[in-house]
Design a protein around this nucleic acid. Sequence first.
DNA 1: CTACACTATTAACTTAGGTTATTATTTCTC
DNA 2: GAGAAATAATAACCTAAGTTAATAGTGTAG
Lengths: 240, 240
Amino acid sequence: MTKLNNFQTHTSEDIRLLEDAVSEERCFGKDEDVIREDQTTNHVYLVVKGWACRYRTNSLGKMQILNYQIPGDFCNLHTTLTQKIEYSIGTLVPSVIAYITHDKIDDIYEHHSRLTRSFNWLALNEISILQEWLINVGSRPAHQRLAHLLCELLIRTRAAGLTEDHRFCLPLTQAQLGESMGITHIHTNRVMKRLRAEGMITFQDRIVEVMDWQRLKEYADFDARYLHLDNAEPSLIRDL
Amino acid sequence: MTKLNNFQTHTSEDIRLLEDAVSEERCFGKDEDVIREDQTTNHVYLVVKGWACRYRTNSLGKMQILNYQIPGDFCNLHTTLTQKIEYSIGTLVPSVIAYITHDKIDDIYEHHSRLTRSFNWLALNEISILQEWLINVGSRPAHQRLAHLLCELLIRTRAAGLTEDHRFCLPLTQAQLGESMGITHIHTNRVMKRLRAEGMITFQDRIVEVMDWQRLKEYADFDARYLHLDNAEPSLIRDL
DNA sequence: CTACACTATTAACTTAGGTTATTATTTCTC
DNA sequence: GAGAAATAATAACCTAAGTTAATAGTGTAG
């Protein structure tokens, strides 16, 4: 709900409605799949705690990560109309996932226009982030891609209330970072070294600290508007 | 409407509703912008005739195409919640674009559940295609990217009723093809040559002919499910 | 506390794809 | 329909990023 409040304020009824829609909460360990590509489901998954990602593996085992989900993010809100799922959803750290059945979501779309608007906002964000990732992978050199990804994740973790300053926990291996940017883990390492050498970030024990936000932002050609946080608490995203 | 019927059948009321929602139809020449990034609008654009694309240009002038729109495709259905638009929409050939105001779309979301479902299906497709493009650019070598893109466009043009066999009109320059795959036009040319040399396609006078669909499909690692045509007229997509 | 398995780091070498440049072709424009 | 401007097609050369391999550090199951 923290997240949805970045779009519009919700009544206690909205909140209860969403909470009641959750049929179950399940705990997962690190690196477990919530669902595998080509399985069927009539649930939508919401990350309550932890980190998850949507990804696909091709016939040769090469993996492409499609988005990350942090607390408050739906993993597959857009799949309500189809049972078949075209990609896998996996956890990156031990996580708690809420299950919501398609009926409940349909019911909200049918009868609750305020929450419907919020869901549409989430769909808009999903598309915007995908577009930005496509731009990242399709048109930026590797060092900019990493810088851009780090900018996004800093803002998203802040907007989710996971951090308040310029450090955040990034529980990803360099291989996984590479799989979201279309580069190998070797090259991710090279590029990470470069960002560190330039004094823009540090990254130790899963903690990223952005030392020079302004410079990182420019370096990455980062423009936060695609995250649509115009209505968020200004304090959450101050200095950004 | 041809397109929406690939998802579910619509009543004459649905059809009238959509037609009435169109406030205006405008004609554009080749390579004209319908709207530029960072402009504001309260319209959603629907391609009636022609080809359009959504794209973004970075500060150095490098362009990334985010999707193509053929007749029946909305260019920006997901932007109903925001006036600011984060990318440009341009035509590739002389085109007719229908304008629908945000209110009309909101009204449909609020009162017409059948059309709302269809819009949600369009949003699902938008996300699926973006994901597939991200996978394309992020994890496939250039020759596979082109083959994959051609597979997608053949099926989409067929589903839109623009062609019935294995040829279709592709009104794109090699530069534009490259801009959708994250490669240069020089390399697009190299890779196109290779597909031709292998006897999979021909491409002359803007007409692509797929000579060996099975082989192209395998070569591209193409799986049409992401286009969600399960409910389409079987004849439209036979042999695919 | 040890052993095994990830993960990070770096080096050496290779290659897909980028850059620049040149010459046909088309395609617009006046 | 001549001239100008895109577009396509190739070649030669270069570089960002991939590949393979080796080492060191970290985490963790027993």
